[in-house]
Design a protein around this nucleic acid. Sequence first.
DNA 1: CCTAGCAAGTTCAGATAATGAACGCAGCCC
DNA 2: GGGCTGCGTTCATTATCTGAACTTGCTAGG
Lengths: 165, 165
Amino acid sequence: MPRRSFAEFACSLARSLDVIGDTWTPLILRDVFLGVDKFNDIARDLGVSRALLADRLEHLVREGVLGETVYHQRPRRVRYTLTDGGRELVPILVALTQWGDRWRSGGEAPLEFTHECGASLDAEVACGDCGRPLVAESIAARPGPGGRMAPGTVVIAERLTREGT
Amino acid sequence: MPRRSFAEFACSLARSLDVIGDTWTPLILRDVFLGVDKFNDIARDLGVSRALLADRLEHLVREGVLGETVYHQRPRRVRYTLTDGGRELVPILVALTQWGDRWRSGGEAPLEFTHECGASLDAEVACGDCGRPLVAESIAARPGPGGRMAPGTVVIAERLTREGT
DNA sequence: CCTAGCAAGTTCAGATAATGAACGCAGCCC
DNA sequence: GGGCTGCGTTCATTATCTGAACTTGCTAGG
């Protein structure tokens, strides 16, 4: 649970960060994706405090990123699963992992991924339209339909609006 | 600064999160990318506490994600810029923003991006080899050259090794 | 029946980090 | 000189994280 809610921010990045914007949450999601989906297993895998894990799992379920599969009633025992929304986060987490491979692990990947096409996976963010890999220089921003002046984008909104006129 | 350093984790995701794994850092990087690159501007834009911002900026510079361009000596005044490593994070942040557009903002993007190809940008994570968009189901994991048994991947390492044999 | 063990939390005291407001400080503008 | 700008720093308060122990409901073994 982030220290502050970004719900009122007119910014989808902030809203995403409300869900996965902390140190442990992405690791929890990765674990669930890799099949480490039970409370004790995740706690042991990550070495995270149980209180925090319980808190985060509840948050992720409430936010619709994780779902629960009951495998034992009374006492209720649950496997955590990725929802559709959660599954859409996986490629982003893989891309972030590979950024870490390149810039933090000296190119030596602790974990390698393979794609169903058979290749050792190199995840890249591409333009859905022209298909070319995205680089920062090729991207521009402008206010969208959901945009408005609100905390989190005060200065940005000013500038983009000014530039647009 | 996360509550705990993940440096000893044999996991590039954890190492990435050591750099950008908190609530404010990705927003700071987005601001710098969008040209909001001075201390006061970022502080005002995000409404973040100045102590935290100073801390994070220093951290990001130390980690090589941001650089400084001195625009005034004595007193030293600086614009923050993205390094090569930092620029490679931008597409990932855009992808995360658009995940938020889809799942948190009801499809109404507060901020829209355009690609140099002319299209309204739809950032997707694709396989660098076959070019198809990545979905969670098409990805498998196996231990890589940098892998070892260490905190953060205890259970995962066990399982992947067992499966591999 | 008794004891041990397991899985998934919960509780709690102490440590750490975040917040918001005020302060410092160097130079610039008039 | 006096006020302003820009970038921090300091500080008290509040919120969050940690690690260890505890709880609860059930199952397995003897």
